[in-house]
């Protein structure tokens, strides 16, 4: 299957790969799995005063899944939690020129962002 140049670029030079200490106060962690492909994606955000100051990810999956999560971390940096919550997978699809069979990879990345935000909010609910 042919990947777009943008997917290949992110795949070869993924942004923000890594791990934050998930016990840290400022961190929210989203861990999502796509059983259809056996992919697993972890996306973490660092939040200060309601703004995402940094993001990291670790994805084991196909090139499109890696590129989607790499792009997702770039997109959300500097956003408020409210802004990041509104990110739609279609933005990732457009940016990466994902073919129809790979759209589910962008959905996984969107879900990972939401899971990370949820985790952060839950931990700060009290």
């Amino acid at each position: 299957m042919a990947y777009s140049d943008k997917v290949i670029e992110h795949y070869e030079n993924p942004r923000n790969v890594g791990t934050f200490d998930k016990g840290d106060e400022e961190i929210g962690t989203g861990l999502v799995g796509a059983p259809a492909c056996g992919d697993v994606m972890r996306l973490q955000i660092k939040v200060k005063d309601g703004v995402i100051t940094d993001a990291k990810f670790k994805t084991f999956g196909c090139g499109s899944a890696i590129a989607s999560s790499s792009l997702a971390t770039e997109m959300i940096k500097g956003m408020t939690l409210e802004q990041a919550e509104t990110i739609k997978n279609t933005q990732i699809v457009e940016e990466l020129n994902l073919p129809p069979v790979k759209i589910h990879c962008s959905v996984l990345a969107e879900d990972a962002i939401k899971a990370a935000i949820d985790d952060y909010k839950k931990r700060h609910a009290r």
Binding site: V32, G33, A34, P35, A36, H104, V107, D111
Partner: peptide, 8 residues
């Protein structure tokens, strides 16, 4: 079925 957009 195991759907494309299912989550574990």
């Amino acid at each position: 079925f195991i759907g494309d957009n299912e989550r574990l």
